[in-house]
């Protein structure tokens, strides 16, 4: 069985992942327009503006910058997941400060120009970071090996698989396993399902999960939820004649879709 593999993503031709090449439905990206819309609200945050807009702007800006950082890391890499997160946050904070000072206006110019600017900010950030790290390292600078081009991300899959895996289950039919896993996950409460998802797929610590608006408990409470969920899942899989195994392709998307729908229902109801 082929497990979900970030390595596969590295074999995608660069052109295939550039904006505008996606043949699915409407290829025009929506986030740039939303970011520009939110920027106007954020600029007023200091004068009692919209806090919710600030949070959404921050999330979207970080996602966009992180995307560009990942692209540039392919060229200049390598960077750990934590370094990429910190670098993105650092650049994001700088941009928010510039937005408030009036030295950056996402609304000026076209969306393409704003995207090019963000890409440039991310590229400079990656280059500066790598230069600084080389200066600080004791040994001589070395060229990144091919296998290290996108080292962050691999760990996600490893952790995701490890959370459920006792030994590799290569002969198992992936679709059957995915279906069974999804059915078992469905037996968890929505809150437990979200906590398990955040742990297994998003690699969140108990403290982070505890802070999630859909969870809101103590880290010890999260540990309890996770232990109970794992036991329940193992038991459920065993009742179907299956044992914990690497998570097959398609499982993550199906699970994300379900959890996202639950979160949206909750948000919509509120």
């Amino acid at each position: 069985m082929r497990s979900l593999d970030i390595q596969t993503a590295r074999r995608i031709p660069a052109a295939a992942i550039e904006p505008g090449t996606l043949p699915l439905a409407d290829a025009r990206a929506r986030w740039p327009a939303r970011l520009r819309e939110l920027a106007g609200l954020v600029r007023r945050t200091g004068e009692g503006g919209d806090e919710a807009a600030l949070e959404e702007f921050w999330r979207l800006l970080n996602l966009a910058l992180h995307g560009y950082v990942r692209r540039h890391v392919r060229r200049f890499g390598p960077l750990s997941a934590d370094d990429a997160f910190d670098l993105t946050a650092d650049k994001g904070l700088d941009l928010v400060a510039r937005l408030r000072r009036g030295s950056w206006d996402p609304g000026a110019g076209t969306e393409e120009q704003m995207c090019a600017f963000l890409s440039s900010v991310a590229r400079h950030g990656v280059i500066d970071f790598i230069r600084r790290r080389r200066r600080e390292s004791a040994g001589p600078a070395r060229e990144p090996m091919t296998d290290e081009l996108i080292p962050f991300g691999r760990a996600i899959v490893a952790d995701a698989a490890q959370a459920l895996t006792t030994e590799a289950e290569t002969a198992l039919d992936g679709r059957r396993y995915a279906r069974a896993l999804l059915e078992c996950v469905q037996t968890l409460t929505p809150r437990a399902r979200l906590a398990w998802y955040l742990r297994v797929f998003s690699d969140c610590t108990a403290a982070r999960i505890a802070r999630h608006p859909g969870i809101l408990t103590s880290p010890a409470g999260v540990d309890l939820i996770l232990n109970r969920s794992r036991r329940q899942l193992r038991k459920c899989l065993a009742s179907r004649g299956l044992q914990a195994s690497p998570i097959p392709p398609g499982t993550f998307v199906a699970l994300w879709e379900r959890i996202d729908a639950e979160q949206r229902r909750k948000g919509g109801a509120a």
Binding site: I6, I12, L63, H66, G250, F252
Partner: peptide
């Protein structure tokens, strides 16, 4: 699967 892997990174 490749796109799913990258979506995992984004989420």
């Amino acid at each position: 699967p490749a796109c799913e892997g990258r979506f995992l990174e984004v989420t």
